[in-house]
């Protein structure tokens, strides 16, 4: 029902799928997400929409293999079908002409920042993009990001490609350069978004982040994704996923992301054990 029409390996653990979901693709906007189930026993995981093609009816999702479900997803191929795909969920990015914006994408967060940068530029903004990853291998979409940015800064944590820096360093430099920056978008791992928000705060530049909390239904009915923003409890699935990074209680978000660490480890070990047994090379000898 939700057929994978293209697969690209962006990095050893980062995969891109195009999925045929014409109705979702028709309505999808930058900043929104979908909930995906791999098979009938699968959990529901949120994945940010990295792109959409209203003509071909395809939706692009990019994910990093970190646990059982994403590893299983990564083993799927063109022609395979997802058990379910629900969306577009969450509020779209508020695209306006703000003036000059910085778009920061860290790691797998480069994928969702792309349509935001593209739409912000189309709306007339000057877009300065900063993308970064732990190393060269994990970096992707450099040219794609360049094509939607007025300036692009690329960095890796270990210096294996381009500039050796965390994304917060060039972010701080641009803010210090005296150029008027009207707003910042930062998407990536929670810890990166936290530090981007801390970096921009002294400059008083509004910073929008896209939170990646644990979800079940994605439509507001469970509250698994709740976070505190400006001292109030909000649901990431319906009130977000984008929030003002200066208002987010980052420690709470980070703690809540760890709820199922133990179970996630068990599930992954079981999956890897079973996958090894199924692997024919194990049977040789």
């Amino acid at each position: 029902m939700y057929r994978i029409t293209a697969k690209e390996v962006l990095a050893p653990v980062t995969k891109l799928f195009k999925v045929y979901a014409p109705e979702v693709a028709r309505k999808a906007k930058a900043g929104q997400f979908v909930i995906v189930r791999v098979d009938e026993k699968g959990e529901r995981i949120p994945l940010t929409i990295a792109d959409y093609d209203r003509e071909s009816g395809e939706l692009t999702i990019v994910f990093q293999e970190v646990g059982k479900t994403t590893k299983q997803l990564g083993k799927m191929n063109v022609g395979d079908e997802l058990a379910s795909l629900t969306g577009p969920l969450g509020r779209p990015t508020e695209i306006e002409n703000y003036g000059t914006v910085i778009c920061v994408g860290g790691g797998v967060g480069i994928a969702p920042i792309y349509p935001i940068a593209r739409d912000l530029r189309a709306a007339g903004n000057t877009v300065i993009s900063i993308i970064g990853a732990r190393n060269k291998e994990l970096l992707f979409w450099e040219e794609k990001m360049r094509s939607v940015s007025d300036e692009l800064i690329v960095c890796t944590d270990d210096g294996s490609y381009a500039r050796k820096a965390l994304v917060t360093e060039p972010l701080k430099e641009v803010l210090e350069s005296g150029r008027k920056i009207d707003i910042v978008w930062a998407i990536g791992p929670a810890i990166m978004m936290k530090f981007c928000s801390l970096t921009t705060k002294p400059f008083g530049v509004k910073t929008i982040v896209s939170l990646n909390s644990i979800m079940v239904d994605g439509t507001g009915m469970c509250g698994a994704c709740r976070v505190e923003v400006g001292g109030k409890t909000r649901f990431v699935c319906v009130d977000g996923p984008e929030f003002d990074g200066h208002e987010v209680d980052w420690n709470l978000l980070l703690e809540r992301q760890r709820i199922y660490l133990e179970q996630e480890k068990r599930a992954l070990e079981k999956f890897e054990r079973e996958h090894q047994q199924a692997c024919p090379c194990e049977e040789v000898g």
């Binding site: 026993k41 959990e43 529901r44 079940v216 709820i259 199922y260 179970q263 068990r266 599930a267």
Partner: peptide, 15 residues
């Protein structure tokens, strides 16, 4: 819905 009582046969965890 997610049958977390059958974890890890089903993927969804519960405390």
């Amino acid at each position: 819905l997610m049958k977390a009582y059958l974890f890890p046969e089903y993927d969804t965890p519960i405390m």
